[in-house]
Lab assay of single mutants.
Amino acid sequence: MTTFKLIINGKTLKGEITIEAVDAAEAEKIFKQYANDNGIDGEWTYDDATKTFTVTE
């Protein structure tokens, strides 16, 4: 398992979430479901060097 981080730069929600996932594809699926569940819709980026996803509304 690898640790992945999501940085949320939303209009109403900001913060960071860290999860353990098998790979970046699994982490992205989990993070996008979390964002969808919380009404966050924005532009996604991923930095493989730091294993960090960012979503900006």
Rank of each mutant, 00 (worst) to 15 (best):
E16L: 07
G10I: 14
A21D: 06
F53W: 13
T54I: 14
V55N: 03
G39A: 09
Q33S: 11
M1W: 04
G15E: 07
E26A: 15
G39C: 02
D41I: 09
N38T: 07
N38Y: 12
L6C: 02
L6Q: 00
I17K: 12
D41G: 11
F31I: 13
V55H: 02
Y46N: 01
Y46F: 08
G15A: 14
T56Q: 05
E43V: 13
F4C: 01
T2P: 07
W44H: 01
I40D: 01
E16C: 03
K11F: 04
F31Q: 00
N38A: 12
N9D: 07
N36C: 03
A21I: 10
E43G: 14
K32A: 05
E28V: 15
D23E: 11
A21C: 02
T12W: 08
G39Y: 11
K29Y: 09
E26I: 09
I30F: 15
G10M: 05
E16R: 08
F31A: 12
M1Q: 10
D47G: 12
I8P: 01
I7N: 14
D37M: 15
I30K: 10
E26G: 12
A24I: 10
V55R: 00
T54D: 06
N38L: 06
E43A: 12
D47N: 14
L13I: 04
M1F: 03
F4A: 01
L13T: 15
T56R: 14
Y34L: 06
A24L: 09
E26D: 14
A49Y: 02
T52M: 10
E26M: 14
I40P: 01
M1E: 11
L6M: 14
E57D: 09
T56H: 10
E57G: 08
T56P: 01
L6Y: 01
A27Q: 00
I19C: 01
K11D: 11
L6S: 01
Y46M: 05
A21R: 06
E26K: 10
E28W: 08
E16V: 06
T52F: 15
G15D: 05
A21H: 06
N36G: 15
T12D: 11
G42R: 01
E57M: 11
Y34I: 10
V55F: 05
E43R: 14
D23L: 04
G15W: 07
W44F: 08
I17L: 09
D47E: 02
M1Y: 15
T3Q: 04
K5D: 10
K14S: 05
E28L: 12
V55P: 00
I30S: 06
D48W: 04
E20Q: 06
D37G: 14
D37I: 13
K11L: 07
N9C: 03
V22L: 06
W44S: 01
D37C: 03
F53N: 00
F31K: 00
Q33T: 09
A27Y: 00
F31H: 01
A35K: 04
E57I: 08
K51M: 08
N9Q: 10
D23S: 06
T18M: 09
K14M: 07
N36Y: 14
D37F: 15
T50R: 13
I17E: 06
F53A: 02
D37T: 15
I8E: 01
D47R: 11
T2Q: 11
I19A: 14
A35E: 02
K14N: 12
I19V: 15
V55D: 00
A25S: 15
A49C: 02
D47K: 13
L13R: 09
K32N: 06
